[in-house]
């Protein structure tokens, strides 16, 4: 897990430098694989996160752990859904989307919103943070989902509303024999889970 120190400091006021943070955290179960400096201002610490700590697979997660280690408060920044509720910003194509959960035992909660977006490159600061975290910038839509994943550990996906069938998203496990073309361009054969 590559964590940009300046990003981390938005969540916790840790004054110690990267070497000291690495030393303390490696004794708390987060071995440091390397410290990388980008230019003169930015430092990236590469933490090894063990399989039992998926909660630390994000800037927020590591910040929480570091706040505990250095006995500092964690600064949570919570954004409301204000911009999505603002109907004046909605484009003409937006209609309500139905979300159906077929396997609520596996996926109990699925949230979504509809936004009118013009596809283009994401801002430079976002691209720089993605690169520091080892993610390749692609476009503003893909980048913002990856940005949220890096910052909060929440996986997201963006769909083109115009291509949804019946304006519906159905969340379910695969069926035997189904095929899926994934983002890397590969056509994959799926198997059912036999439930």
């Amino acid at each position: 897990m590559k964590v940009l120190l300046s990003w981390l400091r938005e969540f916790v006021d840790v004054r110690e430098d990267a070497d000291e943070i690495a030393r303390v955290m490696s004794l708390r179960g987060f071995a440091v694989e390397g410290i990388e400096r980008i230019g003169t201002e930015h430092t990236v610490i590469d933490f090894e996160v063990t399989g039992n700590r998926p909660d630390c697979m994000s800037v927020l997660g590591m910040a929480r752990e570091i706040a505990t280690a250095f006995q500092l408060p964690l600064k949570m920044r919570l954004a409301g859904p204000a911009s999505m509720a603002d109907s004046s910003k909605r484009g003409p194509a937006t209609q309500p989307i139905t979300i159906t959960l077929e396997n609520p035992d596996l996926c109990p909660y699925y949230a979504g919103g509809v936004l009118d977006v013009t596809v283009g490159p994401s801002p430079d600061w976002m691209q720089a943070r993605l690169k520091a975290g080892g993610v390749r910038p692609i476009s503003n839509i893909v980048d913002v989902t990856n940005y949220v994943l890096l910052e909060l550990g929440q996986p997201m996906h963006a769909f083109d509303a115009a291509k949804l069938t019946n304006n519906e998203i159905r969340v379910r496990t695969a069926r035997d024999g189904e095929r899926l073309k994934t983002l890397d361009g590969q056509d994959r054969a799926l198997t059912g889970v036999g439930r």
């Binding site: 490696s26 004794l27 708390r28 179960g29 071995a31 063990t50 399989g51 039992n52």
Partner: peptide, 14 residues
Amino acid sequence: LRPSFFPYTEPSAE
């Protein structure tokens, strides 16, 4: 000893 994780030990240490 540093805390770590292996599925077959608890607690685990490097």
